[in-house]
Design a protein around this nucleic acid. Structure first.
Length: 202
DNA sequence: CTTGAGATGGCCT
DNA sequence: GGCCATCTCAAGC
């Protein structure tokens, strides 16, 4: 997986269907990525690094593509993968996964069942016990990995979630998700498809 | 099932 | 002191 020589928008789409794995000393958690958002750097008014802003919290974003960037928001941890070369602060936010391994433990961590376990950025990090301890290290180097998984039948683009008052950036279609997948945040019942229809080859 | 308001805490100015 | 890349729950349809 190349996190440098593709645009952040391309990487956000390629990540859909990939398998996210987190191993703790006690448990192994994994799931397939079903929803992402691209944050494209210093021109992007919704991006933390907009206008070249650089603070200790953002330092990971300025590292090389493939670095893990985690920050907290209202007590929730947000998982991002940095893209592009060092010094070019762009990233992809992982917003939702389809749980695969460690499902019982995830349900216990979240005190929820079914699609409600991982259908939001703060939910999946809590379910998988992902914390800021991973901030700044490279993906696939330690306990957090991303490997090949499934292939979406169809990818839908939409505006990003929770980005008001950012002029044209509010409506830019930089959010991507697997069409009809029930684990996508805010998915309505009427838009859901069956597994054979949202993953290629079932 | 869908919608909206309120609760959160860390980070920046 | 203000600003959020959110979540949950209660009320309405």
């Amino acid at each position: 997986m190349d996190y440098i020589n593709q645009s952040t928008e391309e990487i956000a789409q390629v990540l859909l269907g990939k398998k996210l794995i987190h191993k703790t000393p006690v448990h192994t958690y994994s799931g397939y990525i079903v929803e992402t958002e691209a944050y494209v750097g210093i021109e992007d008014m919704a991006c933390h690094s907009y206008a070249g802003r650089r603070t200790p919290r953002l330092e990971s974003m300025y590292k090389s593509g493939g670095t893990i960037y985690i920050y907290t928001m209202h007590t929730h941890h947000m998982l991002n993968i940095v893209t592009k070369e060092e010094g070019n602060p762009q990233a992809v936010l992982i917003r939702a996964i389809e749980p695969f391994e460690g499902i019982e433990e995830m349900e216990k961590n979240r005190q929820a069942n079914g699609v409600n376990v991982c259908n939001g950025p703060g939910k999946l990090t809590k379910a998988m016990e992902i914390t800021k301890a991973l901030n700044g290290i490279l993906i696939n180097e330690e306990s957090l990995r991303i490997v090949d998984g499934k292939v979406p039948s169809q990818i839908i683009e939409s505006p990003r979630i929770g980005i008001p008052n950012k002029e044209e950036w509010t409506l830019k279609p930089l959010r991507y998700y697997v069409k009809g997948h029930p684990c996508v945040s805010g998915m309505k019942k009427g838009e859901m498809l069956s597994a054979a229809d949202y993953w290629h080859y079932g």
